[in-house]
């Protein structure tokens, strides 16, 4: 069995894995990171989105062996130590979730979008999240939340310029 070494949410893990083990199952079943759900068998829904070396990937479409040597961030890697990430706060404040199943993937895909575009328009948010399906919200509040978080991340509160 191949042995892999990955960094997940700031901690390093070394494990023997079967080649067929999907990254999402490794995260959920071996590391207990159940914050990342599985929503489909076809790579369509995006619920399982995580960042791998800083870029969004659908963790159901990557083998754990392919992640060997990578740095993975799941939704559980945000808001550690009792703090909340501005993106998590914005989803809460804008009511950008109902059942919450799509939310971890939406949040990780949104962070990926802001990496390349710190101030996305409504259309750019919709295009950036085209790989993430939500069956509840109708997307309106998700778009609002992402733009709100983007604003907050550009101009962090409490950083007013001192006169």
């Amino acid at each position: 069995m191949p042995r892999i070494r990955v960094e997940v949410d700031g901690a390093t893990y070394e494990d023997d894995v079967e080649p067929r083990l999907l990254l999402v199952h490794y995260l959920r079943e071996r590391l207990g990171k159940v914050g990342t759900p599985v929503g489909c068998d076809t790579s369509n829904c995006g619920a399982c989105t995580v960042l791998m070396d800083g870029m969004s990937v659908k963790s159901c479409s990557v083998l754990a062996v392919q992640a060997d040597g990578s740095d993975v961030t799941t939704v559980e890697g945000l808001g550690i130590d009792g703090t909340t990430h501005p993106m998590q706060r914005a989803f809460h404040e804008e009511h950008a979730l109902q059942c919450g199943y799509c939310t971890p993937g939406m949040i990780m895909a949104s962070l990926d979008l802001l990496r390349e575009n710190a101030d996305p328009s409504e259309t750019e948010v919709r295009e950036g999240l085209e790989g993430n399906l939500c069956r509840c919200t109708g997307y309106q509040n998700i778009v609002k939340a992402v733009r709100r978080a983007a604003k907050e991340m550009r101009e962090p509160a409490g950083q007013e310029v001192t006169p």
Binding site: P19, R20, L22, D41, T42, S43, C60, S61, V62, L63, V65, Q66
Partner: peptide, 26 residues
């Protein structure tokens, strides 16, 4: 051959493809 896996992985998961071996060129 396993390249990006974005077409192959769904085929493997649905067991529409059952290869003996994958050669990961990534």
């Amino acid at each position: 051959v396993l390249a990006g896996g974005q077409s192959l992985m769904p085929l493997l998961r649905l067991r529409l493809a059952i290869p003996d071996a994958l050669v990961d060129v990534g």
